[in-house]
Each structure stands twice: as C-alpha cells, then as structure tokens.
Design a protein around this nucleic acid. Structure first.
Lengths: 144, 144
DNA sequence: CAATATGTAACATTAAAAGTTACATGAAAC
DNA sequence: GTTTCATGTAACTTTTAATGTTACATATTG
C-alpha cells in the first residue's frame, strides 16, 4: 500500500468517531474506512488513549470513542500525543573533526527546533471540530 | 550510516564552498567532510547546478563553486532547487467510497499546502551568508 | 595522451513505516 | 460460568524511500 502517515490515520479515525457520537467504533470498522489494518489503528489510537483523547472498551459492543468534545481537541494535541515529527529534514552531524560541519549542524538544529515550534503553534489553532465542520465545505481556517 | 537528509547535505556543502572562496572543491573533498559518498554529493549539487546556484567544472583542478555571492542565496532557494518536501506528513486517500475520508483528505491537503508555504516563507528569510556568519556564534536569526 | 573530475546508470544496503499473524486478556450478554 | 467479541501487544514480514556503492562514459586541463 502507499506511504501514508500516522497523523493522517489518527485524524481520519477521530473524525469518524466524532461523526458517530454515542456509538463506539471497532478497530476493524475504522480499518476498513481508512484502508489499513486493524492493528495499525490500535497502535495509533493506543497513543491517543494514553493522552486521554480517546478511550477503548473491550467485549461485545466495545470499541473506540472520544473522551472529550471535538471542540476541545486540537491538531496539536494529536500531534504531541503521537510523538510525531512533522519535519522530514534532519541535521547530519557529519565528520566531528570538521569545525564547519559542527557549526552548520548546530545552526540547522536551531532552525528545525524553531520550525517545529512554529508548526505546533499553528496546529494548536485547528480543532477537530473545525475539521469536521469544514469537511463539508471547500473552506478551511486560514493559518495566517 | 544514519538517516540524514538531502537538504542538510546541500547546506553543509554550500557553507564549505562559501568558506573557501576562489577554490573549487571536488565531490570527494566534500564527501569526506560530510561523511557521505562522492556520488551522493554529486547528486545533490547537481540539482543546485540546474538551479544556477553552483557550477561544476571537470578535469584537473575542477570541482564545485558558488555562482552567486552567499548573500544572494536563501535557504528557500536551496529548498526549491531540490524539490525537497519539508513536511513528513502525507495525506492518505483511504477508501474512496467513504465520504468522510475524502473530506478529511481534502482538509489535510489544504493544511499541508498552507504549512509548506509558511515554512518556505520562513526559509526565504535566511541567507547562506547568515548561516556562515552565525556559525561561529551561538545566535541564529530568529524566525518570528 | 595521461590524469582528473563530473555525470549517470545500475545495483545493494539501510531504516522507518506499515502490514500481518498469533494469541493473551478483559468485558458484556446469555 | 461460558461464549463471544474486542482490545493489547509481541514478533515477524513486507514495502518504500533514501542512501551508499560500483562502474564506466565523458569532458577538460596540461
């Protein structure tokens, strides 16, 4: 299958849970909609459970449900809960005996930290309810 | 070796070129400092050559050199030249028959485009000369 | 022509994410 | 209590993108 992402899977699952309030959806249900495997869903939602975003119940009629209203869940919450790294770029230590490489590495690291914080702040402005509400329209909350 | 990135390699190489004005460095030279392979260096710098950022000359005393002063090269230039994607996250189409998945995918895509543009704008503020100048100090140009 | 460096194709290696299988555990319905 | 259903999780395989490597053609300098 194609290369998607854990964050994307998490958001898909959360919107599905939000769209069916009261009902709890099983990993197998969600896996079908997300075109992935039930274990992958459990792994991702398991991290969100530890962060108190969702809860799971076992047995018949069990499954996953939101622990908070969608207005109280930001994309940053999800992002942090999953220990996800948004930036693809990593800094490379290179040859430690090369002074320039060491310096560039430090500068790169600072930049990446900055950018990461910047994106996290933007994510904090988008709530799960925003996504759900806007899902039916073309618009999307501007980031600037 | 560890998992670094093309952007990091490119910046390392460019700072080295900037630090040795007049001289042209070979792929093998740069590969030693960056602790990578000469072919990897050629691949990365080859893209910067097509973008007019560096030039290469063959034969004895050949190698790589900057085509513009470091004050005229921004990180965004490098980023765009390499067709690099800064964001690790990708949106997942999921099951196309599921309306929610389609909608979430559209929203995710819009968000990613937004974030990508945001980061590119930030990168445009940092020049190669800034990196070189600040490499010797603890400071780094703030992004906000 | 000899030496040197890029340009590039072809292939191997690596690492992270995703997919899969298997089974233990817990909760609800009867 | 037993059956059923669903999560929790370990262990393993598969996939994919990036990186590393080898080899050789090509161009340039002297």
């Amino acid at each position: 299958m194609k290369r998607s992402s854990r964050l994307s899977i998490a958001l898909h699952a959360l919107v599905h849970l939000h769209a069916q309030p009261g009902k709890s959806l099983t990993s197998a249900n969600l896996a079908t909609c997300l075109m992935t495997n039930a274990v992958v869903v459990r792994r991702v939602l398991g991290e969100l459970r530890e962060a108190g975003i969702v809860e799971a119940s076992k047995g018949p009629n069990g499954g996953w449900s939101l622990m908070r209203p969608a207005t109280d869940i930001t994309l940053r919450d999800v992002y942090v809960a999953m220990g996800e790294r948004l930036l693809r770029t990593e800094s490379d230590p290179g040859d430690a005996t090369c002074a320039i490489v060491r310096s560039v590495d430090r500068v790169m690291t600072e930049f990446l930290d900055d950018a990461e914080a910047l994106l996290a702040a933007r994510l904090a402005r988008v709530r799960l309810s925003d996504i759900a509400a806007n899902a039916m329209h073309a618009g999307f909350p501007r980031l600037d």
